[in-house]
Amino acid sequence: MRPEEAIGSETVEAREARAPFRFPREMVVGLLALAVAWEIVSWFVPPFIVPGWGRIFKSLLGLPLDFVLVTLARVVGALVVSFVLGLGLAVAMYASTPVERYARPLVRLLMAVPVVCWILFAVLWFKWVEFRIAFVLVVVCAPVFLVDALDAMKGVSKDLRDMLRSFRPTRVQLFTKLVLPATVPAILTSWKINLSLAIRVVTIAELVGAVTGIGYGLVVAQELFSVSEVFAWTLILVVILFLAEAVLTRVEERILRWRA
């Protein structure tokens, strides 16, 4: 955690994530330019390939917006479950080397399986649709929480550990006063990673069998050959993702005030 080492290699995004809020002028200009270009293209291309903004917004108003809430609820629910599972297992693996030795390869295996396979397994194994979706999300997100948290726990500096140990802490104190707080930045980062992962995966998971949610909305739009509806849903997804990331970045700033 030496700030002077990080600065050179930092991305613009990482630096901005910690800077105080500033109106994102470049971002807005860029997005507007894209939107204008889109509109111009739509004048020359048939609407079933590139629909203009007028059509997209008309579709937007006609969409069942409660699907958004349903999808969000699925994402948040699955993330909370994944987090509890991932952190719980990380603590167990941190506390016991045998547990870590057995569990590591299994977790690797889980992470190597493509999302599509999980979706097919979910369909083959489970009947209840909500459970299928939750299963896919948890099996994809929990390992990320687990591995990131465990690596951060293992990476706690020996110097700090020795310092704390010189005061003779209990095992629990060593964990709560040093290991856990040292892991907070990694946990926040894995929330960010998993949030965008979950939002992208949930829609695919909803393609199979769900009769609510944005994924289902996309299937319906596709069956109706309504390109503008597909675009409208996509727009909603992207906006949700941006908003969620902005919120998490604020939270991170708050919690990580202590960082240089």
């Binding site: 955690m1 110097d159 700090l160 310092m163 006063k177 707080p181 907070v184 202590w258």
Partner: peptide
């Protein structure tokens, strides 16, 4: 080194 906890 001071070995202070940076979050405290």
């Amino acid at each position: 080194q001071d070995r202070l906890l940076p979050w405290r």
